[in-house]
C-alpha cells in the first residue's frame, strides 16, 4: 500500500481514496446503482421479461390514486402507532421506574427485554403465529379466564389482523426503547431532581419538568429507529398474514415484493420502493431536526 506521505495529520491526503475504494466500490455497485435503477424502472410499465413501456410518473400517481396502494401506506401509519407510540409510552414509564427505584435484578431485566431484538424476525413471526392461532396460546389464555366470547383466529380476522401484527411490533420495540431511555435518564444529574423537589414538585411534575426534557435526544433516536422499523415491516407480514385477509395487512414493503415477484408489475414495485425510501429519509431528517431545534 501507499508508503510514507509527507505532512502532518489533517493535511489533504490522496492515499485516503485508496482506503475508501474497496468499500465504496461494493457500496456503489450494490446500493447506489440499484437505487438509481429503481428510480429508472419506476418510470416504466414492465413485467420483468418483455420490453418495458415508458409511463412517466403514472406509477407514482397510482400510489395516491390506487385504493389498494393507499391502503398499504395507511396500514404502515397504523403500524407506526404500534411500533413507536406504544413502546414510547410503556418505555418512558418503565425507564422512570427503573431509574428511580434501585431495584435488584436490573441486569437480568435488561437482558430479557432486549432479547426480542436479536431473535430472527422469521422466528418471532412463527412464535406469534402460534400465539394468535385459533387453538393458540392467546385463545387458551382467554378461555382460562372465562372470556371465550373474545376468542377468534386473530390473524384471519379483518378487524384484528392489523392490530395483531402491530402488537408484535410493540412487543419487540419496547425493550429497545426502554433500555435507550434508561441510559438517557441515568445521565440526568441528581441536582436537577433535588432542585425540583425543593420547588415542591411532585413525582408527576418532576417527570414532566425534569425527566422528559432531559431525554429528548433519546426520544428522537427511539422514534427514528422504531418508525423506520414500522415502515419496513416485511418478514413479519410475509410469515404471519401475507397481507391478508383480503388486503387488510398489506404494507409497502410487502407490496414491493408482491408486485415485483407475484404480479410481475416491476415498475409499480420500484415506484413503491423509491417512495418508501423518500418517506424514510424525510421522516428521519424531520425527527432529528425537530430534536435539534428543541435542544438549542
Amino acid at each position: 500500500m501507499a508508503g510514507r506521505s509527507a505532512g502532518p495529520p489533517g493535511e489533504p491526503r490522496r492515499v485516503a481514496y485508496l482506503y475508501l475504494l474497496p468499500a465504496f466500490a461494493v457500496y456503489a455497485a450494490f446500493l447506489l446503482y440499484p437505487i438509481g435503477r429503481a428510480v429508472q424502472l419506476s418510470l416504466y410499465d414492465w413485467d420483468g421479461l418483455s420490453l418495458g413501456r415508458w409511463v412517466g410518473l403514472d406509477n407514482y400517481v397510482a400510489i395516491v390514486a390506487d385504493e389498494g396502494l393507499r391502503a398499504a401506506f395507511g396500514h404502515a401509519l397504523v403500524l407506526i402507532v404500534f411500533y413507536s407510540g406504544g413502546p414510547l409510552v410503556i418505555g418512558l414509564g418503565l425507564a422512570a421506574i427503573l431509574n428511580h427505584a434501585k431495584v435488584r435484578g436490573l441486569g437480568f431485566f435488561r437482558t430479557v427485554v432486549f432479547l426480542p431484538q436479536v431473535v430472527a424476525m422469521v422466528v418471532v413471526a412463527v412464535a406469534w403465529r402460534r400465539v394468535y392461532a385459533p387453538d393458540g396460546t392467546l385463545n387458551t389464555l382467554l378461555g382460562a379466564l372465562g372470556l371465550d366470547s373474545l376468542t377468534r383466529g386473530w390473524l384471519g380476522d379483518y378487524t384484528f389482523a392489523l392490530p395483531a401484527v402491530g402488537v408484535v411490533g410493540t412487543w419487540f420495540e419496547t425493550g429497545l426503547v426502554t433500555v435507550l431511555l434508561l441510559a438517557g435518564m441515568s445521565r440526568i444529574p441528581g441536582e436537577l431532581y433535588e432542585a425540583a423537589r425543593l420547588d415542591g414538585a411532585g413525582a408527576v411534575r418532576e417527570f414532566f419538568a425534569v425527566t422528559l426534557p432531559s431525554v429528548r435526544g433519546e426520544i428522537a433516536v427511539a422514534l427514528t429507529l422504531t418508525v423506520i422499523a414500522a415502515l419496513r415491516t416485511f418478514d413479519l407480514v410475509y410469515i404471519t398474514t401475507k397481507g391478508g385477509p383480503g388486503d387488510s395487512t398489506s404494507v409497502p414493503s410487502y407490496e414491493v415484493y408482491h408486485r415485483a415477484f407475484g404480479l410481475s408489475q416491476v415498475g409499480s414495485a420500484a415506484a413503491i420502493g423509491v417512495t418508501l425510501t423518500v418517506v424514510i429519509f424525510v421522516i428521519s431528517f424531520g425527527i432529528n431536526r425537530f430534536a435539534d431545534r428543541r435542544v438549542s
Binding site: F24, P34, I35, A38, P252, V256, V266, T277
Partner: peptide, 22 residues
C-alpha cells in the same frame, strides 16, 4: 462522499432488492 455513505444507513433493502434481482 460521507453523506453518500450515510444514505445507505437508512436505505431500505426493499427498494434496491428489486432492481438488483433483475
Amino acid at each position: 462522499l460521507f453523506y453518500l455513505f450515510m444514505l445507505g444507513i437508512m436505505m431500505p433493502s426493499e427498494a434496491v432488492a428489486v432492481p438488483l434481482y433483475f
